[in-house]
Design a protein around this nucleic acid. Structure first.
Length: 512
RNA sequence: GCGGAAGUAGCUCAUUUGGUAGAGCAUCAGCCUUCCAAGCUGAGGGUGGCCGGUUCGAGCCCGGUCUUCCGCUCCA
Protein backbone atom coordinates (compact mmCIF):
# COMPACT_ATOMS: atom_id res chain seq x y z
CA UNK A 1 0.00 0.00 0.00
CA UNK A 2 1.27 3.41 -0.91
CA UNK A 3 2.09 5.84 1.88
CA UNK A 4 -0.57 8.27 3.03
CA UNK A 5 0.53 11.16 0.89
CA UNK A 6 0.47 9.08 -2.28
CA UNK A 7 -2.77 7.50 -1.20
CA UNK A 8 -4.35 10.92 -0.82
CA UNK A 9 -3.12 11.96 -4.25
CA UNK A 10 -4.65 8.82 -5.67
CA UNK A 11 -7.95 9.53 -3.95
CA UNK A 12 -7.94 13.03 -5.44
CA UNK A 13 -7.25 11.83 -8.97
CA UNK A 14 -9.71 8.97 -8.60
CA UNK A 15 -12.40 11.48 -7.64
CA UNK A 16 -11.84 13.33 -10.86
CA UNK A 17 -11.41 10.31 -13.09
CA UNK A 18 -14.66 8.72 -11.96
CA UNK A 19 -16.85 11.81 -11.81
CA UNK A 20 -16.94 12.51 -8.09
CA UNK A 21 -15.26 15.90 -7.84
CA UNK A 22 -14.11 18.46 -10.39
CA UNK A 23 -12.38 21.72 -9.82
CA UNK A 24 -14.78 24.61 -10.30
CA UNK A 25 -14.61 26.34 -13.71
CA UNK A 26 -11.70 24.14 -14.66
CA UNK A 27 -11.65 25.29 -18.29
CA UNK A 28 -10.80 28.76 -16.98
CA UNK A 29 -7.95 27.38 -14.86
CA UNK A 30 -10.20 26.82 -11.90
CA UNK A 31 -11.11 28.93 -8.94
CA UNK A 32 -9.04 28.48 -5.83
CA UNK A 33 -10.63 26.30 -3.17
CA UNK A 34 -13.93 25.89 -4.99
CA UNK A 35 -15.01 22.48 -6.27
CA UNK A 36 -17.95 20.94 -8.11
CA UNK A 37 -19.48 17.55 -7.47
CA UNK A 38 -19.77 15.34 -10.53
CA UNK A 39 -22.35 12.74 -11.44
CA UNK A 40 -21.20 10.23 -8.85
CA UNK A 41 -20.13 12.77 -6.26
CA UNK A 42 -23.53 14.42 -6.28
CA UNK A 43 -25.16 11.06 -5.50
CA UNK A 44 -22.73 10.19 -2.74
CA UNK A 45 -23.09 13.64 -1.20
CA UNK A 46 -26.86 13.47 -1.38
CA UNK A 47 -26.82 10.05 0.29
CA UNK A 48 -24.62 11.28 3.14
CA UNK A 49 -26.89 14.29 3.62
CA UNK A 50 -29.88 11.99 3.57
CA UNK A 51 -28.33 9.73 6.19
CA UNK A 52 -27.78 12.72 8.45
CA UNK A 53 -31.24 14.17 7.85
CA UNK A 54 -33.02 10.92 8.43
CA UNK A 55 -31.08 10.11 11.59
CA UNK A 56 -31.76 13.59 12.96
CA UNK A 57 -35.25 14.47 11.80
CA UNK A 58 -36.93 11.21 10.97
CA UNK A 59 -35.55 9.30 13.95
CA UNK A 60 -36.17 12.03 16.55
CA UNK A 61 -39.77 13.10 17.04
CA UNK A 62 -38.65 16.30 18.77
CA UNK A 63 -36.34 17.47 16.00
CA UNK A 64 -37.65 19.22 12.91
CA UNK A 65 -35.83 20.48 9.85
CA UNK A 66 -35.89 23.85 8.16
CA UNK A 67 -34.25 25.42 5.13
CA UNK A 68 -33.36 29.04 5.77
CA UNK A 69 -32.15 31.45 3.09
CA UNK A 70 -28.48 32.15 2.54
CA UNK A 71 -29.13 35.90 2.62
CA UNK A 72 -30.06 37.27 6.02
CA UNK A 73 -30.70 40.71 7.43
CA UNK A 74 -27.28 42.36 7.91
CA UNK A 75 -27.97 42.98 11.59
CA UNK A 76 -27.97 39.21 12.07
CA UNK A 77 -24.21 39.25 11.68
CA UNK A 78 -23.76 42.14 14.05
CA UNK A 79 -25.71 40.22 16.66
CA UNK A 80 -23.81 37.02 16.06
CA UNK A 81 -20.48 38.80 16.41
CA UNK A 82 -19.30 37.94 12.90
CA UNK A 83 -19.04 41.53 11.69
CA UNK A 84 -16.72 42.62 14.50
CA UNK A 85 -14.77 39.43 14.97
CA UNK A 86 -14.03 39.00 11.28
CA UNK A 87 -13.05 42.54 10.42
CA UNK A 88 -9.50 42.92 11.61
CA UNK A 89 -6.85 44.84 9.68
CA UNK A 90 -3.86 42.52 9.39
CA UNK A 91 -0.23 43.13 8.56
CA UNK A 92 2.67 40.74 8.01
CA UNK A 93 6.31 41.11 8.87
CA UNK A 94 8.22 40.01 5.79
CA UNK A 95 11.25 38.75 7.72
CA UNK A 96 9.65 36.72 10.47
CA UNK A 97 6.58 35.83 8.36
CA UNK A 98 4.48 36.60 11.40
CA UNK A 99 1.07 38.15 11.01
CA UNK A 100 -0.27 40.75 13.38
CA UNK A 101 -3.43 42.70 13.85
CA UNK A 102 -2.49 46.22 12.83
CA UNK A 103 -4.72 47.75 15.49
CA UNK A 104 -3.01 45.68 18.18
CA UNK A 105 0.43 46.81 17.04
CA UNK A 106 -0.68 50.41 17.28
CA UNK A 107 -2.29 49.86 20.66
CA UNK A 108 0.94 48.26 21.89
CA UNK A 109 2.89 51.25 20.69
CA UNK A 110 0.51 53.56 22.53
CA UNK A 111 0.84 51.40 25.64
CA UNK A 112 4.62 51.85 25.47
CA UNK A 113 4.27 55.60 25.49
CA UNK A 114 1.87 55.37 28.38
CA UNK A 115 4.46 53.30 30.22
CA UNK A 116 6.95 56.12 29.67
CA UNK A 117 4.52 58.59 31.23
CA UNK A 118 4.01 56.27 34.16
CA UNK A 119 7.77 56.13 34.62
CA UNK A 120 8.04 59.93 34.63
CA UNK A 121 5.26 60.11 37.16
CA UNK A 122 6.96 57.52 39.32
CA UNK A 123 10.29 59.34 39.19
CA UNK A 124 8.67 62.64 40.06
CA UNK A 125 6.72 61.09 42.92
CA UNK A 126 9.99 59.99 44.48
CA UNK A 127 11.60 63.36 43.99
CA UNK A 128 8.93 65.59 45.46
CA UNK A 129 7.44 65.46 48.92
CA UNK A 130 3.90 66.69 48.37
CA UNK A 131 3.46 65.21 44.94
CA UNK A 132 0.33 66.23 43.08
CA UNK A 133 0.05 63.70 40.26
CA UNK A 134 -2.78 65.46 38.52
CA UNK A 135 -0.90 68.71 38.51
CA UNK A 136 2.27 66.99 37.36
CA UNK A 137 0.53 65.32 34.46
CA UNK A 138 -1.02 68.55 33.27
CA UNK A 139 2.11 70.67 33.59
CA UNK A 140 5.22 68.56 33.02
CA UNK A 141 6.38 69.31 29.47
CA UNK A 142 7.70 65.81 28.80
CA UNK A 143 4.52 64.14 29.95
CA UNK A 144 2.45 66.59 27.99
CA UNK A 145 4.54 65.81 24.93
CA UNK A 146 3.84 62.09 25.32
CA UNK A 147 0.20 62.68 25.98
CA UNK A 148 -0.12 64.78 22.86
CA UNK A 149 1.55 62.06 20.84
CA UNK A 150 -0.87 59.45 22.12
CA UNK A 151 -3.83 61.59 21.20
CA UNK A 152 -2.39 62.20 17.76
CA UNK A 153 -1.91 58.51 17.16
CA UNK A 154 -5.35 57.63 18.39
CA UNK A 155 -6.96 60.27 16.23
CA UNK A 156 -5.02 59.25 13.17
CA UNK A 157 -5.92 55.63 13.71
CA UNK A 158 -9.57 56.41 14.30
CA UNK A 159 -9.70 58.52 11.15
CA UNK A 160 -7.96 55.89 9.09
CA UNK A 161 -10.29 53.14 10.23
CA UNK A 162 -13.36 55.26 9.61
CA UNK A 163 -12.20 56.06 6.11
CA UNK A 164 -11.05 52.48 5.65
CA UNK A 165 -7.68 53.91 4.66
CA UNK A 166 -5.40 50.93 5.10
CA UNK A 167 -2.36 52.65 3.62
CA UNK A 168 -2.65 55.23 6.38
CA UNK A 169 -2.85 52.48 9.00
CA UNK A 170 0.39 51.09 7.65
CA UNK A 171 1.93 54.58 7.63
CA UNK A 172 1.09 54.95 11.33
CA UNK A 173 2.92 51.72 12.06
CA UNK A 174 5.89 52.90 10.01
CA UNK A 175 5.90 56.33 11.66
CA UNK A 176 5.76 54.78 15.10
CA UNK A 177 8.79 52.70 14.14
CA UNK A 178 7.06 49.57 15.33
CA UNK A 179 9.34 46.56 15.11
CA UNK A 180 8.36 42.93 14.87
CA UNK A 181 8.95 41.29 18.26
CA UNK A 182 10.22 38.16 16.53
CA UNK A 183 12.49 39.39 13.76
CA UNK A 184 13.11 42.88 15.16
CA UNK A 185 12.70 44.32 11.69
CA UNK A 186 10.41 46.99 10.27
CA UNK A 187 9.92 45.25 6.97
CA UNK A 188 6.10 45.28 6.81
CA UNK A 189 3.67 44.27 4.10
CA UNK A 190 0.60 46.28 3.18
CA UNK A 191 -2.24 46.28 5.68
CA UNK A 192 -5.11 44.17 4.49
CA UNK A 193 -8.63 43.88 5.68
CA UNK A 194 -9.51 40.24 6.07
CA UNK A 195 -13.20 39.80 6.32
CA UNK A 196 -14.12 36.16 6.34
CA UNK A 197 -17.61 37.03 5.13
CA UNK A 198 -18.40 37.47 1.45
CA UNK A 199 -20.52 40.49 0.76
CA UNK A 200 -22.72 41.60 -2.06
CA UNK A 201 -25.27 44.31 -2.68
CA UNK A 202 -29.01 43.87 -2.49
CA UNK A 203 -31.28 46.27 -4.32
CA UNK A 204 -31.41 47.04 -8.02
CA UNK A 205 -30.37 50.67 -7.80
CA UNK A 206 -26.83 50.92 -6.58
CA UNK A 207 -27.42 54.04 -4.47
CA UNK A 208 -30.19 52.34 -2.57
CA UNK A 209 -28.44 49.02 -2.33
CA UNK A 210 -27.38 47.79 1.05
CA UNK A 211 -24.49 45.52 1.76
CA UNK A 212 -25.55 42.02 2.65
CA UNK A 213 -23.45 39.00 3.45
CA UNK A 214 -23.44 35.42 2.34
CA UNK A 215 -23.92 33.52 5.57
CA UNK A 216 -20.66 32.25 7.11
CA UNK A 217 -22.60 29.63 9.05
CA UNK A 218 -26.09 28.18 8.86
CA UNK A 219 -26.77 28.33 12.60
CA UNK A 220 -28.13 31.88 12.61
CA UNK A 221 -30.95 30.89 10.28
CA UNK A 222 -32.08 28.52 12.99
CA UNK A 223 -31.78 31.02 15.82
CA UNK A 224 -33.79 33.74 14.09
CA UNK A 225 -36.51 31.18 13.35
CA UNK A 226 -36.52 29.74 16.85
CA UNK A 227 -39.91 31.15 17.83
CA UNK A 228 -41.52 30.55 14.44
CA UNK A 229 -40.73 26.86 14.64
CA UNK A 230 -41.46 26.52 18.33
CA UNK A 231 -44.89 28.12 18.01
CA UNK A 232 -46.07 26.66 14.71
CA UNK A 233 -44.70 23.23 15.52
CA UNK A 234 -45.96 23.38 19.12
CA UNK A 235 -42.51 22.25 20.18
CA UNK A 236 -41.76 21.61 23.82
CA UNK A 237 -38.30 21.96 25.29
CA UNK A 238 -36.08 20.08 24.85
CA UNK A 239 -36.36 20.16 21.06
CA UNK A 240 -34.10 20.58 18.07
CA UNK A 241 -34.06 22.34 14.71
CA UNK A 242 -31.96 20.78 11.96
CA UNK A 243 -30.73 22.31 8.75
CA UNK A 244 -28.38 21.54 5.91
CA UNK A 245 -27.11 24.17 3.55
CA UNK A 246 -24.33 26.16 2.02
CA UNK A 247 -22.16 28.55 3.97
CA UNK A 248 -19.37 30.80 2.70
CA UNK A 249 -16.08 31.89 4.18
CA UNK A 250 -13.41 33.88 2.45
CA UNK A 251 -10.57 31.81 3.89
CA UNK A 252 -7.10 33.31 3.69
CA UNK A 253 -5.65 29.91 3.08
CA UNK A 254 -7.92 27.23 1.77
CA UNK A 255 -6.36 23.95 0.86
CA UNK A 256 -6.34 20.20 1.17
CA UNK A 257 -8.80 19.49 -1.60
CA UNK A 258 -12.37 19.75 -0.38
CA UNK A 259 -11.36 19.82 3.30
CA UNK A 260 -11.39 23.61 3.48
CA UNK A 261 -13.42 25.30 0.77
CA UNK A 262 -14.68 28.82 0.37
CA UNK A 263 -18.16 27.53 -0.35
CA UNK A 264 -19.15 24.54 1.69
CA UNK A 265 -22.15 22.74 3.09
CA UNK A 266 -22.97 22.36 6.75
CA UNK A 267 -25.34 20.00 8.49
CA UNK A 268 -26.32 21.63 11.74
CA UNK A 269 -28.72 20.90 14.53
CA UNK A 270 -29.44 23.30 17.37
CA UNK A 271 -30.94 21.66 20.40
CA UNK A 272 -32.83 23.98 22.76
CA UNK A 273 -32.74 22.97 26.40
CA UNK A 274 -33.63 24.23 29.83
CA UNK A 275 -30.81 26.32 31.35
CA UNK A 276 -28.78 24.21 33.73
CA UNK A 277 -29.38 20.98 31.81
CA UNK A 278 -27.03 21.88 28.95
CA UNK A 279 -24.08 19.77 30.09
CA UNK A 280 -26.26 16.71 30.32
CA UNK A 281 -27.43 17.23 26.73
CA UNK A 282 -23.96 18.18 25.57
CA UNK A 283 -22.69 14.79 26.73
CA UNK A 284 -25.73 13.04 25.30
CA UNK A 285 -25.14 14.55 21.87
CA UNK A 286 -21.44 13.73 21.95
CA UNK A 287 -22.41 10.12 22.42
CA UNK A 288 -25.23 10.20 19.85
CA UNK A 289 -23.09 11.77 17.17
CA UNK A 290 -20.23 9.33 17.67
CA UNK A 291 -22.72 6.50 17.28
CA UNK A 292 -23.83 8.00 13.99
CA UNK A 293 -20.25 7.90 12.70
CA UNK A 294 -19.59 4.41 13.99
CA UNK A 295 -22.75 3.03 12.39
CA UNK A 296 -21.00 3.44 9.03
CA UNK A 297 -18.77 0.55 9.98
CA UNK A 298 -15.39 2.25 9.59
CA UNK A 299 -12.80 1.42 12.28
CA UNK A 300 -13.63 3.20 15.53
CA UNK A 301 -9.96 4.11 15.94
CA UNK A 302 -10.42 6.50 13.01
CA UNK A 303 -12.47 8.82 15.22
CA UNK A 304 -11.61 10.68 18.37
CA UNK A 305 -12.91 13.51 20.50
CA UNK A 306 -10.87 16.65 20.89
CA UNK A 307 -12.01 18.91 23.72
CA UNK A 308 -11.54 22.63 23.26
CA UNK A 309 -9.54 24.17 26.03
CA UNK A 310 -9.84 27.71 24.77
CA UNK A 311 -13.54 28.33 24.28
CA UNK A 312 -15.17 30.70 21.84
CA UNK A 313 -16.92 33.68 23.39
CA UNK A 314 -20.33 32.03 23.14
CA UNK A 315 -19.55 28.56 24.47
CA UNK A 316 -19.25 27.01 27.89
CA UNK A 317 -18.16 23.64 26.55
CA UNK A 318 -17.00 22.54 23.13
CA UNK A 319 -15.37 19.60 21.42
CA UNK A 320 -14.66 18.27 17.96
CA UNK A 321 -15.07 14.84 16.55
CA UNK A 322 -11.89 14.34 14.60
CA UNK A 323 -11.39 11.85 11.80
CA UNK A 324 -8.10 10.43 10.68
CA UNK A 325 -7.85 11.71 7.12
CA UNK A 326 -4.88 10.62 4.98
CA UNK A 327 -3.26 13.89 6.10
CA UNK A 328 -3.89 13.26 9.79
CA UNK A 329 -6.59 13.70 12.42
CA UNK A 330 -8.68 16.74 11.53
CA UNK A 331 -11.94 18.27 12.64
CA UNK A 332 -14.98 16.67 11.09
CA UNK A 333 -17.75 17.76 13.40
CA UNK A 334 -18.12 20.25 16.23
CA UNK A 335 -20.32 19.87 19.28
CA UNK A 336 -20.77 23.09 21.22
CA UNK A 337 -22.70 24.16 24.24
CA UNK A 338 -23.55 27.68 23.06
CA UNK A 339 -25.43 28.78 26.21
CA UNK A 340 -28.10 31.42 25.59
CA UNK A 341 -25.60 33.69 23.88
CA UNK A 342 -27.10 33.69 20.38
CA UNK A 343 -30.75 34.04 21.35
CA UNK A 344 -29.92 36.78 23.86
CA UNK A 345 -27.92 38.66 21.23
CA UNK A 346 -30.81 38.46 18.79
CA UNK A 347 -33.21 39.62 21.50
CA UNK A 348 -31.00 42.61 22.10
CA UNK A 349 -30.45 43.57 18.46
CA UNK A 350 -33.99 42.88 17.28
CA UNK A 351 -35.83 44.11 20.33
CA UNK A 352 -38.01 40.98 20.15
CA UNK A 353 -38.36 38.48 22.96
CA UNK A 354 -37.01 35.05 22.05
CA UNK A 355 -38.20 33.14 25.05
CA UNK A 356 -39.93 29.93 25.83
CA UNK A 357 -42.78 29.61 28.26
CA UNK A 358 -42.16 26.51 30.30
CA UNK A 359 -45.54 25.19 31.45
CA UNK A 360 -43.93 22.97 34.08
CA UNK A 361 -42.06 25.84 35.73
CA UNK A 362 -44.78 28.32 34.82
CA UNK A 363 -42.16 30.83 33.69
CA UNK A 364 -40.37 32.27 30.66
CA UNK A 365 -36.73 31.80 29.89
CA UNK A 366 -34.23 32.03 27.06
CA UNK A 367 -33.28 28.43 26.31
CA UNK A 368 -29.72 27.18 26.26
CA UNK A 369 -28.44 25.66 23.05
CA UNK A 370 -26.38 22.59 22.31
CA UNK A 371 -25.17 22.54 18.73
CA UNK A 372 -23.92 19.73 16.55
CA UNK A 373 -22.34 20.98 13.35
CA UNK A 374 -20.76 18.77 10.73
CA UNK A 375 -19.21 19.66 7.39
CA UNK A 376 -20.88 17.67 4.64
CA UNK A 377 -17.92 18.05 2.31
CA UNK A 378 -15.55 16.89 5.03
CA UNK A 379 -17.78 13.93 5.71
CA UNK A 380 -17.72 13.18 2.00
CA UNK A 381 -13.93 13.27 2.03
CA UNK A 382 -13.81 11.07 5.12
CA UNK A 383 -16.09 8.47 3.53
CA UNK A 384 -14.29 8.57 0.22
CA UNK A 385 -10.75 8.36 1.57
CA UNK A 386 -11.71 5.61 4.00
CA UNK A 387 -13.39 3.60 1.24
CA UNK A 388 -10.68 3.92 -1.39
CA UNK A 389 -8.70 0.69 -1.64
CA UNK A 390 -5.99 -0.49 -3.99
CA UNK A 391 -6.17 -4.28 -3.82
CA UNK A 392 -3.84 -7.00 -5.00
CA UNK A 393 -5.84 -10.00 -6.13
CA UNK A 394 -4.88 -13.64 -5.87
CA UNK A 395 -4.19 -13.98 -9.57
CA UNK A 396 -1.61 -11.19 -9.35
CA UNK A 397 -3.77 -8.51 -10.92
CA UNK A 398 -4.96 -5.50 -9.00
CA UNK A 399 -8.11 -3.46 -8.70
CA UNK A 400 -9.23 -0.15 -7.27
CA UNK A 401 -12.42 -0.49 -5.30
CA UNK A 402 -14.51 1.91 -3.24
CA UNK A 403 -15.83 -0.11 -0.33
CA UNK A 404 -18.54 2.43 0.41
CA UNK A 405 -21.27 1.53 2.84
CA UNK A 406 -23.82 0.21 0.30
CA UNK A 407 -26.56 2.69 1.23
CA UNK A 408 -24.20 5.56 0.39
CA UNK A 409 -23.06 4.23 -3.00
CA UNK A 410 -23.94 6.43 -5.98
CA UNK A 411 -25.07 3.47 -8.06
CA UNK A 412 -26.67 0.65 -6.11
CA UNK A 413 -26.82 -2.05 -8.75
CA UNK A 414 -25.34 -2.67 -12.18
CA UNK A 415 -27.31 -4.94 -14.48
CA UNK A 416 -24.95 -6.71 -16.87
CA UNK A 417 -25.85 -9.08 -19.70
CA UNK A 418 -22.98 -11.53 -19.98
CA UNK A 419 -23.23 -11.46 -23.78
CA UNK A 420 -24.42 -8.71 -26.00
CA UNK A 421 -26.61 -11.15 -27.94
CA UNK A 422 -28.84 -14.22 -27.65
CA UNK A 423 -31.61 -12.22 -26.00
CA UNK A 424 -29.54 -11.48 -22.90
CA UNK A 425 -29.68 -7.66 -23.28
CA UNK A 426 -33.45 -7.86 -23.61
CA UNK A 427 -33.76 -9.91 -20.44
CA UNK A 428 -31.40 -7.52 -18.64
CA UNK A 429 -33.49 -4.53 -19.73
CA UNK A 430 -36.55 -6.19 -18.27
CA UNK A 431 -34.86 -6.67 -14.88
CA UNK A 432 -33.36 -3.19 -15.02
CA UNK A 433 -36.72 -1.58 -15.72
CA UNK A 434 -38.25 -3.20 -12.66
CA UNK A 435 -35.38 -2.35 -10.34
CA UNK A 436 -34.96 1.29 -11.31
CA UNK A 437 -38.18 2.24 -9.53
CA UNK A 438 -36.55 1.65 -6.16
CA UNK A 439 -32.81 2.04 -6.76
CA UNK A 440 -30.40 4.01 -8.92
CA UNK A 441 -29.15 1.36 -11.34
CA UNK A 442 -26.97 1.19 -14.40
CA UNK A 443 -27.09 -1.21 -17.31
CA UNK A 444 -23.92 -1.89 -19.26
CA UNK A 445 -23.42 -4.04 -22.33
CA UNK A 446 -20.11 -2.77 -23.63
CA UNK A 447 -16.77 -4.51 -23.01
CA UNK A 448 -15.97 -7.76 -21.29
CA UNK A 449 -17.72 -8.72 -18.10
CA UNK A 450 -14.51 -8.39 -16.10
CA UNK A 451 -13.95 -4.87 -17.28
CA UNK A 452 -17.48 -3.93 -16.39
CA UNK A 453 -17.06 -5.37 -12.88
CA UNK A 454 -13.92 -3.28 -12.35
CA UNK A 455 -15.61 -0.15 -13.57
CA UNK A 456 -18.41 -0.67 -11.07
CA UNK A 457 -15.87 -1.43 -8.31
CA UNK A 458 -14.20 1.89 -9.02
CA UNK A 459 -17.36 3.86 -8.28
CA UNK A 460 -18.35 1.66 -5.35
CA UNK A 461 -21.39 -0.10 -6.79
CA UNK A 462 -22.12 -2.77 -4.16
CA UNK A 463 -23.88 -5.31 -6.39
CA UNK A 464 -23.72 -6.50 -9.97
CA UNK A 465 -26.46 -8.64 -11.46
CA UNK A 466 -25.24 -10.77 -14.34
CA UNK A 467 -27.67 -12.19 -16.87
CA UNK A 468 -26.38 -15.34 -18.59
CA UNK A 469 -27.82 -18.18 -20.66
CA UNK A 470 -29.01 -19.98 -17.55
CA UNK A 471 -31.16 -16.94 -16.76
CA UNK A 472 -33.21 -17.66 -19.88
CA UNK A 473 -33.65 -21.27 -18.81
CA UNK A 474 -34.45 -21.08 -15.08
CA UNK A 475 -35.05 -17.36 -14.48
CA UNK A 476 -32.16 -16.86 -12.07
CA UNK A 477 -29.31 -14.35 -12.14
CA UNK A 478 -25.96 -14.14 -10.38
CA UNK A 479 -25.47 -11.38 -7.84
CA UNK A 480 -21.85 -10.39 -7.35
CA UNK A 481 -20.80 -8.76 -4.14
CA UNK A 482 -18.31 -5.92 -4.57
CA UNK A 483 -16.01 -6.47 -1.60
CA UNK A 484 -15.65 -10.27 -1.73
CA UNK A 485 -16.22 -10.60 -5.49
CA UNK A 486 -18.27 -13.71 -4.62
CA UNK A 487 -21.32 -14.61 -6.65
CA UNK A 488 -24.66 -16.13 -5.69
CA UNK A 489 -27.46 -17.27 -7.92
CA UNK A 490 -30.82 -15.82 -7.01
CA UNK A 491 -34.28 -15.99 -8.62
CA UNK A 492 -35.21 -13.01 -10.75
CA UNK A 493 -38.48 -12.69 -8.81
CA UNK A 494 -36.53 -12.07 -5.61
CA UNK A 495 -34.09 -9.53 -7.05
CA UNK A 496 -35.96 -6.41 -5.92
CA UNK A 497 -36.56 -7.70 -2.43
CA UNK A 498 -32.98 -8.87 -1.90
CA UNK A 499 -31.40 -5.74 -3.35
CA UNK A 500 -33.65 -3.34 -1.46
CA UNK A 501 -32.92 -5.10 1.81
CA UNK A 502 -29.16 -5.07 1.28
CA UNK A 503 -28.67 -1.53 0.06
CA UNK A 504 -31.36 0.09 2.19
CA UNK A 505 -30.63 2.64 4.90
CA UNK A 506 -33.04 1.00 7.38
CA UNK A 507 -30.62 -1.39 9.00
CA UNK A 508 -28.08 1.39 9.47
CA UNK A 509 -30.64 3.63 11.15
CA UNK A 510 -31.57 0.71 13.38
CA UNK A 511 -28.03 0.70 14.77
CA UNK A 512 -28.35 4.24 16.09
C1' G B 1 -0.10 35.61 2.87
C1' C B 2 5.47 33.98 2.61
C1' G B 3 9.10 30.34 0.64
C1' G B 4 9.95 26.01 -2.61
C1' A B 5 8.27 22.76 -6.72
C1' A B 6 5.13 21.72 -10.78
C1' G B 7 1.62 22.56 -15.18
C1' U B 8 2.41 18.76 -22.66
C1' A B 9 -4.30 14.31 -25.14
C1' G B 10 -9.48 12.23 -20.24
C1' C B 11 -5.09 9.61 -17.23
C1' U B 12 0.40 8.35 -16.74
C1' C B 13 4.38 10.25 -19.21
C1' A B 14 8.04 11.08 -23.55
C1' U B 15 9.98 14.84 -27.04
C1' U B 16 19.26 14.76 -25.84
C1' U B 17 22.11 21.39 -27.05
C1' G B 18 15.46 26.24 -29.09
C1' G B 19 13.76 23.91 -35.60
C1' U B 20 5.88 23.93 -36.32
C1' A B 21 4.39 17.22 -30.63
C1' G B 22 4.45 11.21 -29.69
C1' A B 23 3.42 6.45 -26.78
C1' G B 24 0.57 3.39 -23.50
C1' C B 25 -3.98 3.27 -21.18
C1' A B 26 -8.81 5.46 -21.63
C1' U B 27 -12.91 7.11 -25.20
C1' C B 28 -15.94 6.18 -29.78
C1' A B 29 -17.39 2.86 -34.19
C1' G B 30 -17.14 -2.08 -36.25
C1' C B 31 -15.63 -7.35 -35.84
C1' C B 32 -14.55 -11.39 -32.58
C1' U B 33 -14.82 -13.36 -27.61
C1' U B 34 -17.52 -14.12 -23.01
C1' C B 35 -17.72 -14.53 -15.39
C1' C B 36 -13.31 -10.57 -13.07
C1' A B 37 -9.33 -4.55 -16.88
C1' A B 38 -8.49 -10.50 -23.55
C1' G B 39 -7.80 -9.66 -29.16
C1' C B 40 -8.19 -7.27 -34.23
C1' U B 41 -9.37 -2.91 -37.50
C1' G B 42 -10.38 2.05 -37.69
C1' A B 43 -11.52 6.98 -35.69
C1' G B 44 -11.74 11.27 -32.63
C1' G B 45 -8.99 14.12 -29.18
C1' G B 46 -3.41 18.87 -27.96
C1' U B 47 -3.48 27.43 -30.20
C1' G B 48 2.12 22.68 -24.97
C1' G B 49 -2.24 26.53 -18.22
C1' C B 50 -2.78 31.78 -19.85
C1' C B 51 -0.46 36.70 -21.33
C1' G B 52 3.79 39.08 -22.89
C1' G B 53 9.23 39.36 -24.13
C1' U B 54 13.97 37.56 -26.55
C1' U B 55 14.75 34.99 -31.42
C1' C B 56 14.51 34.03 -38.42
C1' G B 57 12.06 30.33 -35.24
C1' A B 58 9.87 29.01 -28.26
C1' G B 59 6.73 23.20 -25.18
C1' C B 60 12.14 24.26 -24.14
C1' C B 61 15.18 30.79 -22.52
C1' C B 62 13.18 35.39 -19.65
C1' G B 63 9.08 38.20 -17.08
C1' G B 64 4.16 38.31 -15.35
C1' U B 65 -0.28 35.79 -14.15
C1' C B 66 -3.57 31.57 -12.87
C1' U B 67 -3.97 26.80 -10.74
C1' U B 68 -2.11 22.67 -7.97
C1' C B 69 1.26 20.28 -4.49
C1' C B 70 4.89 20.64 -0.13
C1' G B 71 6.56 23.58 4.21
C1' C B 72 5.42 27.79 7.28
C1' U B 73 1.41 30.91 8.62
C1' C B 74 -3.81 31.39 9.44
C1' C B 75 -8.34 29.03 10.91
C1' A B 76 -15.45 30.12 15.60
Amino acid sequence: MANNEDLFKNVVSHSKEYGFIFQSSEIYDGLSAVYDYGQNGAELKKNIRDYWWRSMVQMHENIVGIDAAIFMHPTTWKASGHVDAFNDPLIDNKDSKKRYRADVLIEDAVAKIEAKIAKEVEKAAKRFENFDEKMFRSTNPRVMEYQKKIEEINNRFKDAMEKNDLAEVRQIIVDLEVVCPVSGSRNWTEVRQFNLMFSTAMGSVSEDASVIYLRPETAQGIFVNFLNVQKTGRMKIPFGIAQTGKAFRNEIVARQFIFRMREFEQMEMQYFVKPGTEMEWYNKWKETRMKWHNALGFPETKYRFHDHIKLAHYANAACDIEFEFPFGFKELEGIHSRTDFDLKQHEQFSGKKLQYFDPELNQNYVPYVVETSIGLDRMFLAVLSQSYKEEKLEDGSSRVVLTLPPFLSPVKVAVLPLLNKDGLPEKATEIFNRLRFSQLCQMEEKDSIGKRYRRQDAIGTPYCLTIDHQTLEDNTVTIRERDTMKQDRIPVDKVNEIVNERVGIEKVLARL
